[in-house]
Amino acid sequence: MLVVSAIITGLGLGSMYGLLALGFHVTYAVSATVNFAQGSSMMLGAVFAYTFAVRLGWPIAPAAAMALALCALYGVIVELLAVRPFARRGSNAWLMATVALGIVVDNAVLFTFGKEPRGFNMPWATGSIPVFGIGVSPLQLLIPAAGVALAGALHFYWRRTRGGKAMLAVVQNPEAARLMGINVPRVISGAFALSTVFAGAAGILIAPLFNVHSDMGTVFGLKAFAVAILGGITSAWGVMIAGVVFGVVEALITALLGSTYTQILSFALVIVVLAAMPNGMFGRAEVKKV
């Protein structure tokens, strides 16, 4: 029972880490840069959805859609303000710039949205259904499903649509992609939008289980980065799987050894795994060329 409940907990959290990590993967694959403040993107998704659905009373579907659209816009802004000016000059100061922008956004939300955590109560999220004799929130089942669905949607987008294939082309060979007439800067900008949409979706999904406040994303963003790296940031399915594995391992450590060891062991595992597999669990080694 302990193990089963831990696995269910881990699956829900892990898929959410996976979604956030997928966001890291998308931008890294296309541009070798990431938004280090991905947690802020997640928080924005939840805050926007709360604002529309609860404060303005919209039905959840348009509220979530609108929130994701705003997230996409935020992704474009991140790339424009905190990544492009540096990446263009070959400087790695985007590392710091995205963090700084995240601080600005977190604090701006603190003063506009409010300082109190708010409950995002959705009727379909509360209640408990028995699974293997354990009470589970419907949302805990929905999150892994939504995670897989979104990863699948990404897969479909990449494999079946023109825009998606253009993005894949940029991933595989930016120069040849330009020769196809693909506007590479726009694709990178689009990748950041997509990345932020994934983070926003994770935020909206987790909000009813959790709560909504300006600081809610920080820890998740960090763990998601660990997951992205563990999975091998170059592999989409790799980061998704790593997310689930990380979530389940974390919950199992808590359940079996006690919460005292959760943080130490999970981060120590990160170091050990990376020392053994320097390109993550599913990442590909870069070919050394002279």
């Binding site: 890294y28 990431v34 960090l222 980065f225 660990a226 992205a228 790296i229 563990l230 940031i233 981060f267 120590a268 990160v270 170091i271 990376l274 020392a275 320097p278 390109n279 993550g280």
Partner: peptide, 11 residues
């Protein structure tokens, strides 16, 4: 690269 960043963060 990012893998090194993560090892140090974890440390």
């Amino acid at each position: 690269g990012p893998y090194l960043a993560m090892v140090t963060i974890a440390f």
